[in-house]
Design a protein around this nucleic acid. Structure first.
Lengths: 255, 255
DNA sequence: CGGTGCTTTGACATCGCTCAACGACGGTGG
DNA sequence: CCACCGTCGTTGAGCGATGTCAAAGCACCG
């Protein structure tokens, strides 16, 4: 199930369909949603703090990050998004941005107007529920990040995000075997994990030396899923993936 | 606007009405929602990891916490809830709990069946949007906690959560002047902030000595809002309160 | 009057940060 | 083709914020 060559709205249908079974009319409605596709360069702001967006975006290709900017140049990356994700769906009902949304890599992104989406959710409760659910899964990711930042040490935090990003990408066909892309640089990973890039680098060395993962050239390879997941105390429940992620673990394991 | 003596569903109406203006029919629908009110003791589990709840709960009185349990008895409190909050609204579309929900203090809680809520959201898109929005604000709180845990030092973290809990309670009429209840014990606050209760205690002493806040007998008093907010780099945008929280700051300031 | 739970404090250990430098690599222009 | 430069990754030494362990104080309550 490789991504990239379907039409944007086919991608959205597949995403929404994966958990909440859509009816035929609902599927057709999504496929007919008007939208604009744009290519954006890396490090480009999609929406900033205080903005009042009038459209939502669907990532077709590339990596997007959500972050809060603090004084003194500090920043906290709150989440990463990949193809198939709708990072600012929340702007549909939260009108003022309380954070920033920016591309990490060059991206292809589809924009869908709020007005059109609201009409859709008004007439198709099933679609409203599916989109709602998507934002709830986003929130589940946030909660797990809170747990990581609050109670896991650096080693466990890094291991945990690797498990998460691998499984999430695998679910949309972006992983191959026990490897998947990992676009964020070390500094960006550090900003997501509440660490310094220096310390993150040392943690990566440890993981490499223990034979758990290798990260090189933007490719993450999981060498030993079981140990990595154990180190992270990783439980895939929070991902709320339909297939329960069990099969994914096996795939990585046998690579 | 004190809470406690309205009927449960009046409380819910007020909550939903505060941002998304409800129509008369929608208001009436909520008021007629069947529900059960129960009193629960402190430290009582409302729903646990792995459960599949069949109802949502509305806090009428008391404090509720959402937490993740880690191995070795460690736990991370992801959020606190007070009167007017619906902590597990997400279970409406996320069927399997990925965390625990428990009372912190003795609580009065109204339970509303999923089936009834789903019917309501199906027939009243405006109510669906209002409830959806509520879960999105919950998510905004999570994001801010991520930022706190990832990039603020202990002092700023504690200051930040005090600002948040004060404003949230003020918004539902639970604060008086520059004071508000603060039910969590030091150990529980520490579990929410990724700290040790020992260290939290030292931070509290510092805040007290600097004349910023006092915390005693379950009452939080903010002595100097401006300095506290500055220390926390607190920006109320993430609360998404209708009144923009500006007036609230003034209240605390003049106390 | 003696629990029991919560808070407070001290001494010491450790994890992760800071500062500083160097290395690897790819692009770009002379 | 090579010298240069920017970005990213890597490493070392020292320090600071926070955790750990242990014990004592304190309030409430039976």
């Amino acid at each position: 199930m490789p991504t990239g060559y379907n039409t944007p709205m086919e991608m959205l249908v597949r995403k929404l369909d994966s958990c909440a079974q859509l009816e035929q009319a609902e599927r057709a409605t999504i496929l007919n949603l008007p939208h604009a596709v744009r290519n954006l360069p890396a490090r480009h702001d999609i929406a900033g703090f205080g903005d009042r967006p009038t459209q939502c975006c669907l990532v077709l290709q590339g990596w997007v990050s959500r972050y809060a900017a603090l004084s003194e140049g500090g920043r906290q990356i709150q989440s990463f998004y990949v193809a198939g994700d709708m990072p600012d769906l929340q702007s549909l009902h939260l009108h003022r941005m309380d954070h920033h949304l920016a591309t990490l890599t060059p991206c292809t992104i589809a924009f869908i107007g709020h007005e059109e989406l609201r009409q859709v959710t008004k007439h198709y409760p099933g679609l409203a529920a599916a989109l709602w659910r998507d934002t709830l899964i986003d929130a589940a990711h946030f909660r797990e990040r809170i747990t990581s930042l609050g109670r896991r040490q650096a080693l466990g935090r890094v291991a945990h995000i690797f498990c998460e990003l691998y499984l999430r990408q695998r679910a949309v066909g972006l992983a191959s075997g026990s490897s998947c892309p990992l676009a964020p640089k070390q500094a960006e990973l550090a900003d997501a994990l509440g660490l310094t890039s220096v310390h993150l680098n040392r943690v990566l060395r440890t993981l490499r030396m223990r034979g758990l993962v290798t990260l090189s050239g933007g490719i993450l390879t999981i060498e030993n899923w079981d140990e990595l997941a154990a180190l992270a105390e990783f439980d895939p429940t929070f991902l709320h993936q339909a297939n329960d992620a069990a099969s994914a673990e096996e795939t990585a394991e046998h690579a």
